[in-house]
Simulated assay, not measured.
Amino acid sequence: MATRRDFLIQSAIFSAGTVLLPSCALAPGAKGGLGVQLYTFRDEMAKDAIGTLKKIAEIGIKKIETARSGKGHYYGLSPKEMKTVCTDLGMSLVSGHVHLDKNFDKTVEEAVESGQEYLICSTMPTRGQTVDNYKSVAEAFNKAGEKCEKMGIHFGYHNHEYEYESDNGQILYDVLMDNTQPDLVHMELDLGWVIVAGKDPIDYFKKYEGRFPLWHLKDMDMAHKESTEFGKGGLDIPLMMANQKLSGVKHIFIEQEEYAGAPIDSMIHNLAFMDKL
């Protein structure tokens, strides 16, 4: 009997006019295949978290990374409920985007309850594009990482474009890398924002080998500086995938913030693109 997943994949094949193998959830070198950052489905998750997770599971996604929302870190579900729903759907809750703020202790406790492996700070806790501020933030990240490690969680940081600005001749992201402890601060590299900033992810893989256990795989429309479907932007995805070992990546999350149509259609396209690799 044909399943909804079969129907969706066959539809993607018909639309693209390509031959697609039924392994779209898998990526060489990334443990357990590809995941998705749920910010991709932010509106849908806010309206119907469980129903949206079911649709994501049906197209073959195996890993989930949450994003802070108006309903909390788990879209109105408790941490245990989120874990149970993902498990029942054959997915694993691996990571979550949070803020490093006054409620961070509670955030860590929730992450422990959810069973997730990583807590990723999604934005600079203090703004200021100076070397001194980034050194201060690095110290705060080291302390947060130590707190998380004691609770069995890995702490990390997700970059944007602005971290690649310079102050006094120093790239601020490099200041952050040079002043954080690799065993306490685990970097999630957003490959799309790296190229928008005019940098090459491969250069960072080489300079900080093995320090990027998580990726956001995001193709970018370079003219508009916004995300797009795989193969339509400026990221050399095959080259990135060929350098997984150098980066140290363990978990790859697809993220797309803007779409040509519905988010689920963009995700099906992206999975089909990855299959052709």
Rank of each mutant, 00 (worst) to 15 (best):
K218W: 04
G35D: 04
D167P: 00
E165S: 10
H186L: 09
E139K: 15
G156R: 03
G96Q: 09
M220W: 04
I254V: 12
K218M: 10
D190Q: 05
H97N: 10
T126R: 12
C148H: 02
G233P: 09
D132W: 03
A272V: 06
I61Q: 06
D132R: 11
Q256H: 09
V131R: 11
C86E: 08
T180M: 01
D88F: 04
G90T: 03
V194H: 00
H251C: 02
K199Y: 13
E65Q: 15
D88H: 06
R68F: 09
G72Q: 09
S136P: 01
I13A: 15
S122W: 00
K276S: 14
G261H: 12
K47C: 11
T84I: 11
V196A: 11
L34W: 14
I64R: 02
S92D: 15
E117T: 15
T87V: 04
L271A: 06
K225A: 13
P22W: 08
S227D: 11
A2K: 14
G128M: 09
I56D: 10
M220P: 03
E229K: 07
Q256P: 04
E188G: 07
E110A: 08
E209G: 01
K245M: 04
M91A: 03
G29Y: 10
P263H: 10
K207V: 04
E226C: 12
A242T: 01
N142Y: 06
D132Y: 02
G210T: 06
I59C: 08
D200S: 14
G169D: 07
A25G: 15
I61E: 09
M124K: 07
T180F: 01
P22Y: 08
I254L: 15
P79G: 07
V185M: 01
D105S: 15
D275V: 12
M240I: 12
P238E: 11
R211N: 07
W193N: 10
E113G: 04
E139V: 11
L20R: 11
G35F: 10
T18I: 13
L26Q: 14
E209R: 13
K71P: 00
I50Y: 01
G32D: 10
P22F: 08
G60K: 06
E209S: 15
L189D: 01
Y208Q: 08
G60V: 09
H251M: 03
V36N: 07
R42S: 10
Q129V: 04
C86T: 12
S227W: 00
M187C: 01
S11M: 13
N270R: 08
E165K: 12
H97S: 10
G60P: 08
H186R: 14
D275Y: 05
H186E: 03
A144M: 04
L100Y: 03
L21S: 12
S266R: 06
T107Q: 11
G145P: 04
K80H: 01
L189P: 00
Y74R: 07
M241F: 14
I120F: 07
P125F: 05
L38M: 14
I9F: 13
G233L: 05
G145H: 05
Q170G: 01
L235S: 05
E257F: 04
P125S: 04
